[in-house]
Amino acid sequence: MNIKKSIFIFLLMPLALPSTAQAMHISEGILPTQWALLWYAVAIPFVAWGLRDLRIKSAREPFFKPMVGLIGAAVFVISCMPIPVPMAGSCSHPCGTGMASILIGPAMTVLVSSIALLLQALFLSHGGLTTLGGNIVSMGIVGSLAGWSIFRLTRRLGLPAWGSAFLAGMLSDWATYAATSLELASALHGTGSMPKLLTAIGISFLPTQLPLGIFEGIVTAGVYCFIAARRPSLLECLGVERKRCACELCECEPKTGGVQ
């Protein structure tokens, strides 16, 4: 076992440790019924899109299911792992959706995030069933679309892969918390000013999420570089990198939609 693999495994070790639930998911009962229903209505088509994507891709590429399993388990554990931020004196968690969307695409990321959030709401007192739609929208949809689009855009602009992965991880984390702020402000502003409350909530998240977003960017870049070094053919088969796929893992057609 080489040193890169050892370091990668030990970076993942904390993911398997138990911890208490302290995080950003919107807790049970906070969103009024009409807002909870609205976010469910927004989330359901994206979850259906993820299910369709899973069926199509897993039929075409046999290695896709283990990849989804690996990424799904990572998103589940990362998104309930509180990390203390010394400069803020509080804890929060990364989301893992930036990394996931780069590797398995935004549709599948929405699906694995939904499953992770459902399990957390059911068994870990983390988030809630009434707020599940809102949490899927902020973490699953906004986080994954932000991460995926930033990675694609920055790669097309010529940024190296590690730089794009870093930006995707960092900005997807910040986008998730911005979406959470928007959901809270829109539901809770009452007769007060919604933009004012949105700004106040966003500023309250800043001391914790600024450093945590940078941390998530570093982890995302590290994971990407590990895969690129250990098994670059995976990235080609997933359409993340545009090269002719001739690996032994899949029988997919050469990709034309990836980025170089």
Binding site: H25, E28, I30, S90, C91, T180, L197
Partner: peptide
């Protein structure tokens, strides 16, 4: 070392009369 669910989310929710 409270989570941001307590220090941010629930704080604003309670202020708006929607405690968790």
């Amino acid at each position: 070392w409270s989570g941001v669910d307590e220090t941010v989310v629930e704080k604003y929710a309670e202020a708006a009369g929607r405690p968790a």
